[in-house]
Nucleic acid binder design. Structure first.
Length: 657
DNA sequence: CTATTCTCGCTTTTT
DNA sequence: GCGAGAATAG
């Protein structure tokens, strides 16, 4: 019986030979699978099989694309292990496979070897806005016009180069040509950026991967250590790996060659971030002895949905031939709704969701609304509120909220006194009467020369940080955060402020609540984990997972998820497929990536799809007329039905301001 | 030197 | 229609 439960859906579709290959091949395995074929499940199954065969869980490493996926996989493995204890698994229950994202793995590797790298254990992790602020500062120092050389563009180049394993040194070497070109400026800025970052004892997102790679490359004995430690490697969403991730994987796998990767080139939607499908296509070259397994049966969607998805993706030229099939029923037709504008579109979604719940007894949590760009969520939220449909917005980063970042900065600054970025952020939070000039003086070591009154204020701020540090060593994370809120005077300030202030305070308290789950860890370690989770943008949404609500998210963040009912919105030219403002027609490669993205969106649905678009959309406050997306032409008319319920076509009343 | 008001430019997608 | 920097008032 228990054996039966171990059997997973994905493997049922394989012929016995393939099944054996997945489970028993210890050498390299490449699983090429379509959407909904059970890629992640297959990895999970293989891991369990290894354990069953006597492999210690601690010798297994699995890399997933998101933290959420990692968490789910860990839970599933733990669950199945407990369930199958009766089968006499040779497992000590303290042992768990190491399941994480590449970035978490990076943090882990760098922390374990921090002394060697000259880093403190509590190194800060820069997010994009931290990096951007630093680059702006550098441009100012260099007296470079940020309009001529945009900070975000410079950061993008640096980030892409780092993902491609280019270090500052290499880049400066290449880009000596013209000091006034973008490359020249970038080289100069990048150098300073690295220096300042190092002085702050901080790493940025790309460093987590690049530095990990360089560590293993530079110290062969360390590499050997990890190769011995993780004998069995698994990588999910292999098509989305970039060069650093690929090289890191290769280093860890090249000796044992017991690597199993899973991917689908039709779902490569991160090439803008350096993801290279070549990594997947070249797997056979890297590991000539590799077994290749194709999974084409989809266990998720109805025939209608699969037919539409197949038709869409077939239009792409840069792909391997693959045809998904399903044994599920034909299913409902795809509903197309043409809205006059985005408000009407949003109202339709909200009402239809409400109708589905009332008339078809659909759980709201089984309904997802997908869109191309985050700004589209606003109108949808407003409609959900107006129609009083409970919703949950995914992807709004709780940790990116200003007030939450402030609290986190207090923690970071207390632990890492070198972190100028954090100090600058909070030295005047709440307003202590310390402005730009004072801050400049404080950080250029002129603290003693300040006017007495100002000096007193500055000193009390630094005393607060010391107090926080003491609390971290003595109290549980929840208590530390509560102390920051009260001790800093933020509570007093915000309590009798505006409605918005009170909301900010609520979010800060929410952080204290969230920190609760780290309370059981040894003192100090909890805060460390909290900061790590915050920097790596792990999902905090799970907190409200139980809530019965429609889920709103971008197509990108819907990857790997599935829902019974899926609305794909904003299907207009220039929006989906997206086209940068003012750019010329999108090229072949871009169009194909957008099409893959659309394919990902389509294949999220189990039961039914809704496609909608607006004839007029307000962007930046001005009205844009758009024609419907070219992707409609890819889908057979017979699979579609038009929404003709004109009750939704009410006149929209425009408020004059 | 700091606090407040004002204006301009902006938006893919994310670990 | 918002949020970060500049201009201006205190």
């Amino acid at each position: 019986m228990a054996e039966e439960k171990l059997e997973n859906e994905a493997l049922k579709g394989l012929n016995p030979e393939q099944k054996m290959a997945v489970l028993t091949t210890l050498g390299p395995v490449l699983i090429v699978a379509g959407a909904g074929a059970g890629k992640t499940k297959t990895i999970t199954h293989r891991i369990l099989h290894l354990i069953k065969e006597g492999v210690a869980p601690s010798q297994i490493l699995a890399i997933t694309f998101t933290n959420k996926a990692a968490k789910e996989m860990r839970e599933r493995i733990t669950h199945l292990l407990t369930e199958n204890r009766a089968l006499n698994f040779p497992v000590a229950h303290t042992e768990v496979p190491f399941v994480s994202t590449f970035h978490s793995l990076g943090v882990y590797l760098l922390k374990e070897n921090c002394q060697l790298l000259g880093l403190p254990r509590h190194f800060s992790i820069f997010d994009k806005s931290d990096s951007l602020r630093l680059i702006k500062e550098i441009l100012k120092e260099l007296d470079i016009n940020p309009k001529q050389f945009e900070p975000s563009k410079i950061l993008n180049i640096i980030s892409r180069e780092k993902s491609d394993l280019t270090t500052v040194e290499n880049f400066s070497g290449q880009a000596t040509k013209n000091a006034y070109s973008l490359a020249g400026v970038t080289a100069k800025v990048w150098r300073l950026y690295e220096d300042k970052k190092r002085a702050e004892k901080a790493l940025d997102f790309d460093d987590l991967l690049l530095q990990s790679y360089l560590l293993l490359k530079k110290y062969p004995e360390i590499l050997v250590y990890y190769q011995k430690r993780w004998l069995y490697l698994h990588v999910d969403e292999y098509q989305d790996t970039n060069k650093v991730q690929y090289m890191l994987t290769r280093l860890l796998a090249e000796k044992n060659r017991t690597i199993c990767v899973v991917g689908d080139i039709d779902q490569n939607i991160y090439s803008w971030r350096g993801a290279d499908i070549g990594n997947l296509l070249n797997f056979e070259k890297d590991y000539p002895e590799a077994k290749i397994i194709k999974l084409e049966q989809n266990y998720r969607s109805t025939q209608t949905i699969i037919a539409a998805a197949n038709e869409v993706i077939k239009k792409n030229k840069m792909r391997l031939e693959k045809n998904l099939f399903t044994k599920k029923e034909e299913g409902k037709k795809i509903t197309v709704f043409e809205a006059g504008n985005e408000i009407e579109e949003a109202r339709y979604l909200a009402r239809e969701a409400k109708r589905l719940q009332a008339e078809e007894k659909v759980k709201l949590s089984e309904i997802a609304v997908l869109y191309r760009a985050n700004f589209q969520s606003r109108v949808i939220e407003e409609a959900m509120i107006a129609e009083s449909v409970p919703y949950q917005l995914l992807g709004t980063k709780f940790f990116e909220r200003k007030e939450v970042k402030d609290i986190l900065s207090f923690l970071r600054a207390a632990l890492n006194p070198d972190s100028l970025t954090d100090l600058k952020r909070i030295i005047n939070v709440p307003a202590r009467g310390l402005g730009k000039v004072t801050i400049l003086k404080v950080f250029s070591g002129q603290r003693a020369d300040l006017p007495p009154l100002v000096k007193q204020k500055v000193d009390s701020f630094f005393n607060l940080l010391v107090e926080i540090k003491n609390k971290i060593e003595k109290e549980k994370p929840t208590e530390v955060i509560k102390f920051i809120i009260t001790g800093s005077g933020l509570e007093k300030e915000l309590m009798d402020g505006t409605e918005e202030d009170k909301e900010d305070l609520e979010n800060m308290k929410e952080l204290a609540t969230l920190a609760h789950k780290y309370n059981h860890l040894p003192l100090g370690e909890g805060i460390e984990k909290l900061l790590e989770e915050a920097s790596l943008q792990s999902d905090q949404d799970e907190l409200k997972e139980t809530e019965e609500a429609v889920k709103l998210m971008t197509v990108h963040s819907a990857k790997g998820l599935e829902f019974d009912y899926v609305f794909i919105t904003g299907l207009e030219e220039d929006l989906f497929p997206h086209q940068k403002l003012g750019a010329q027609r999108i090229g072949q490669a871009e169009e194909e990536e957008e099409r893959r993205l659309f394919y990902v969106a389509l294949t999220r649905a189990r039961e039914k799809l809704y496609l909608s678009y607006a004839e007029i959309r307000t962007i930046f406050g001005s009205q844009i007329f758009n024609s419907r997306s070219r992707f409609f032409a890819d889908i057979d008319e017979n699979l579609l039905e038009k929404e003709e319920q004109f009750e939704f076509r009410e006149k929209i009343i425009y408020l004059d301001i």
